[in-house]
Simulated scan of single mutants.
Amino acid sequence: MKKLPWKSENNVLNLLSKWITIMPTIKTIDNIKIDIYSREHPPPHFHAKFSEYEELIVIETLETYAGKMPKVQRKKVNDWAADNKQFLMEIFNKLNPRP
């Protein structure tokens, strides 16, 4: 049986991201949510959310793009993200394909 081209995971994500914003939580670290949204602007970044705090962090440099969170939580995010930059970029690129 031939597989239909639109049935692959990447194609479904690409089709969905054109009409809706996808916001998967890709990791939770001690109540800190790491999210990457579709339909996002450069530079490639992720959202770290904790309680009422939210910080946007550039994947390549791990510098703050916007927002702020407590130092203890920021360090936990930084430690995890430093070991997972490639994974973060893959997810960002899947959800935000560039022509």
Rank of each mutant, 00 (worst) to 15 (best):
I59T: 05
A82D: 09
V72R: 13
I29W: 02
P70F: 03
W6H: 15
F50G: 09
T21F: 00
N10C: 06
R98S: 08
D30L: 02
E54F: 01
K85W: 04
L13T: 13
A66E: 08
E40Y: 00
D35H: 11
K3N: 15
P42F: 01
E52M: 09
L15K: 15
Y65S: 11
G67A: 06
F46Y: 08
W80F: 06
S51P: 15
S8D: 13
N11R: 11
T61S: 07
T64Q: 03
R74S: 14
E90T: 01
I36M: 02
V58W: 00
F87Q: 13
D35Q: 13
K7Q: 14
E54N: 13
L16D: 11
G67Y: 07
P70G: 07
Y65K: 14
T21N: 08
P5N: 14
T21A: 02
S17G: 09
K27M: 06
H41V: 08
P5L: 01
N93E: 00
Q86M: 02
F87H: 14
I57T: 05
R39T: 15
P70E: 00
E63G: 12
K33C: 12
Y37K: 11
I34A: 09
V77Q: 02
P99G: 09
P24T: 11
E52V: 10
S8K: 12
D79N: 11
P70M: 02
L62I: 10
W19N: 14
W6E: 14
Y53K: 12
E54S: 11
K71V: 04
T61Q: 04
I91H: 00
F92R: 02
V12L: 07
K49F: 02
F46S: 05
W80R: 13
N78V: 07
N14C: 11
M23V: 13
L4F: 08
M23W: 08
L13M: 06
R74M: 11
E52S: 11
E52K: 13
A82Q: 11
D30R: 09
A81D: 10
Q86A: 03
I29S: 06
K76A: 05
K75Y: 06
R98I: 04
R74F: 01
I91S: 01
E55S: 11
L16R: 14
M69G: 12
D30T: 11
K76N: 12
F87S: 13
T21W: 01
Y37E: 08
H47L: 02
D79V: 09
S38Q: 05
W19I: 13
K68V: 08
V12Y: 05
A48Y: 02
L13Q: 10
Q73Y: 05
E60N: 12
Y65E: 10
K71F: 00
K68C: 09
M1K: 15
E90K: 03
L56Y: 04
I29A: 06
T61R: 07
I57K: 00
T21L: 00
F92D: 00
P43N: 03
P99I: 07
Y65L: 03
K27L: 03
A82M: 05
I36K: 04
V12F: 04
L16T: 15
V12N: 12
K75V: 10
E40I: 04
R98L: 01
T61I: 02
A81T: 14
K3F: 06
N78C: 06
L95C: 08
N14L: 03
K18G: 13
P70Q: 03
D35F: 01
N11T: 13
K2A: 10
E55G: 14
K76P: 15
L16I: 12
A81M: 08
